[in-house]
Simulated assay, not measured.
Amino acid sequence: MDWSDLLGDVAADVLRKGDGERERLVDAARAEALPGERPLAMTAARGKDDFLKGVLLLTSARLLYLKEGRPAVSVPLPGVVDAALSSTRLSGKVLKVTALTGAHRWEGLENAEEFTKHLHAAIASADRAQPLATDTAPAVLSAPAPTPDHAPAAELLDLLERLAALRTAGALDEAEFAAAKRKLLGT
């Protein structure tokens, strides 16, 4: 899947953007792309403080919210601890994403169920991904690479403190905090 194909379709069909605006959107997404990052799925959505829709872009590495005139919101997939889709009369389909970077909410998603399936698959894939070896020397018996399941104590403590701060700030409720903590502790 190509950046311009994916973005062009959503820009034309959902956001009702013309050719010039579509090209600016494609350029903005390419400028945000990391080396080796691939687009997986995209939909239109509103951020919690937005009146008009922006683009919610799922890539192989992260979830990006692109809105004209605003900095991109980036949520790395390995840091996502929960993603839930709900529906309200006022806001339509609502996607809530709880991550180590904070809690995020997008409303009025187009093709919400399909996008959420792609998101859950990408999160599961990011959880299974292992870091690449940096050298070709034979492996020595050692502890596994740091992951949320095997993070060093200092790293784990830092992540737990971030979660507690999100709960204290009201970004996470008790159930979301408990689920995120269980995922970090591997229980």
Rank of each mutant, 00 (worst) to 15 (best):
V94W: 11
V10Q: 02
S142K: 13
A175P: 09
A143N: 14
E37D: 08
L56V: 01
R167Q: 09
P71M: 00
L184R: 12
A154V: 07
A99Q: 01
V75H: 10
L119D: 02
T88W: 14
V26W: 09
A45I: 02
G8E: 04
L40M: 08
M1P: 14
A12H: 13
K93Y: 13
P148H: 13
T98P: 10
L58P: 00
L64G: 03
T98I: 08
P71Y: 00
L6C: 05
E107Y: 03
D127K: 10
T134W: 12
V26D: 07
W3Q: 10
A44F: 01
D5I: 05
S142M: 15
D9F: 13
E23T: 08
R22F: 05
R167N: 07
S87H: 12
G47D: 03
L56D: 00
M42V: 14
L185E: 12
P76V: 05
M42Y: 13
D173P: 02
D49W: 15
I123E: 03
D82H: 06
A72F: 02
D173Q: 06
P146V: 10
A139H: 07
K67Y: 06
S60C: 01
D27A: 11
L34D: 05
L184H: 11
G8W: 01
L66W: 00
T116G: 13
H120V: 13
D50W: 10
N111F: 10
A153Q: 14
G79Y: 11
T134Y: 12
A175R: 12
R167S: 09
D19W: 04
R24T: 04
T116S: 14
G20C: 05
L100H: 11
Q130A: 15
A153R: 14
A28N: 09
R167A: 11
L100K: 06
E23N: 04
V80I: 04
V81D: 02
R46G: 06
A11G: 04
T59K: 01
G92C: 05
A126E: 03
P76M: 05
A179T: 03
E21N: 11
G47W: 00
D27K: 12
K48V: 09
R89P: 01
G69N: 10
L64F: 03
E155F: 14
L15S: 00
V97S: 03
A41K: 12
V81P: 03
L172G: 03
L40I: 07
A154G: 09
L90K: 07
A151W: 06
A121G: 08
G54Q: 01
A126P: 03
P144V: 06
A165P: 11
V80L: 02
R30Q: 12
H150K: 13
V14Q: 15
T98H: 11
R30W: 09
G79C: 07
P146H: 07
